[in-house]
C-alpha cells in the first residue's frame, strides 16, 4: 500500500498547533503536512478553525491581540513562530488571497506594483514586465491591458479577485493561501478562479479554505477536514469524497450536519 504523501515534498508542516483567543481554544493539536506544488483544501463547518489555521501560516493572527499560539509551524526548516523570524519576509514568501476581493483604491497597475515597490526598487521597465507577467499568470492581462491606469474598483468582482491573485503573485511568493476566494463570486467567475488555481499549483503551493464542498472536490489534490478546532481527517481529495475514514467527515460531506 502506498503511504499518503510518500512522493511529496513537504512545504509546510504543523506540529501540535494550539491556538487560543483569550481563554477560548480555537485550534487543538493541529498536526498536518502540506505538500509542495499541490492544492490542499481545508473544509469544515463555520467556526471549525479552518480560517484561523490558514491565518496562522502567514501570521495574520498577529493582528488579533488576544490570540496566543503554541506548537511548531514549519515552513521548510524555519519555524514560522520562531523568535528570529521576520514577519515581513514571511508574508512575502506566503501570500494570501481573501474572501472578499480587496483591490486597493488605485489604478490596476499600481495595485500590482504595490508589493514590488515595497520590497525592491525595480526600474520602470522591470516593473512593467513584472506587472504584465503577474497579470498574465492570473489570466487577467487580456482583459485589462488597455486600461492599466483605470481604477481597480472599475473591474467586476471576479476580475477584482484575479487582480488580487495577480497582486499576490507579483511579490513572488512560494505559498499562496486562499481564504474562501470564491464565496463572493458568481459561478462563472468561480470556475475561472478554480481553473487558475489548478494552473498555479505548478509553481506554487496552494492552500485553500472553502465552504464549498464541490469546490474542494474539484480544485484540490488533498483535503483536510476540520471540526470544532480539531483536524479530523486528512487525505487525498478523491478518497475523502468517495470513502472518508471518519464518520464525522462523511456526515459533513453528505450534508448530515454542518
Amino acid at each position: 500500500m502506498i503511504k499518503l504523501l510518500e512522493n511529496e515534498t513537504i512545504e509546510i508542516e504543523s506540529i501540535d498547533i494550539n491556538l487560543w483567543y483569550d481563554d477560548v481554544q480555537a485550534l487543538k493539536d493541529i498536526s498536518i503536512k502540506l505538500p509542495k506544488n499541490k492544492v490542499t483544501a481545508i473544509i469544515g463547518p463555520s467556526g471549525c478553525g479552518k480560517s484561523t489555521f490558514l491565518r496562522c501560516i502567514n501570521r495574520m493572527n498577529d493582528l488579533i491581540k488576544t490570540c496566543r499560539v503554541t506548537g511548531e509551524l514549519l515552513c521548510g526548516s524555519t519555524d514560522i513562530y520562531g523568535k528570529d523570524i521576520d514577519v515581513i519576509t514571511l508574508r512575502k514568501k506566503i501570500g494570501m488571497v481573501f474572501q472578499k476581493p480587496n483591490p486597493f483604491p488605485m489604478s490596476i497597475y499600481d495595485n500590482i506594483a504595490y508589493g514590488p515597490r515595497i520590497h525592491n526598487n525595480l526600474n520602470k521597465n522591470k516593473l512593467n514586465d513584472l506587472v504584465e507577467e503577474s497579470l498574465r499568470s492570473a489570466a487577467l492581462w487580456d482583459e485589462v491591458k488597455d486600461k492599466l491606469n483605470k481604477s481597480a474598483l472599475s473591474l467586476s468582482g471576479g476580475q477584482q479577485q484575479r487582480l488580487c491573485i495577480a497582486r499576490t503573485l507579483a511579490v513572488k511568493p512560494e505559498v499562496i493561501l486562499f481564504d474562501e476566494p470564491c464565496s463572493a463570486l458568481d459561478p462563472i467567475s468561480t470556475t475561472r478562479i478554480e481553473d487558475l488555481i489548478g494552473k498555479l499549483k505548478k509553481d506554487y503551493t496552494i492552500i485553500i479554505v472553502t465552504h464549498n464542498m464541490q469546490q474542494a472536490a474539484r480544485a484540490s489534490d488533498y483535503t483536510a477536514f476540520f471540526l470544532l478546532g480539531e483536524m479530523i481527517e486528512f487525505g487525498k481529495t478523491k478518497i475523502i469524497f468517495e470513502k472518508p475514514k471518519q464518520k464525522s467527515t462523511e456526515d459533513y460531506i453528505t450534508g448530515r450536519f454542518g
Binding site: M60, P105, Y114, I118, R167, T168
Partner: peptide, 27 residues
C-alpha cells in the same frame, strides 16, 4: 478604511507603517 484593505497590504509583506502611509491615509 476597511480591515480588508489593510489586511491586503499586510499580507503582501508591507509593514504597518507602510500600510498606514500608502493605504490608510490616502483612504
Amino acid at each position: 478604511v476597511s480591515m480588508e484593505l489593510k489586511e491586503g497590504s499586510l499580507a503582501l509583506g508591507a509593514t504597518k507603517w507602510q500600510t498606514i502611509v500608502q493605504i490608510v491615509i490616502p483612504g
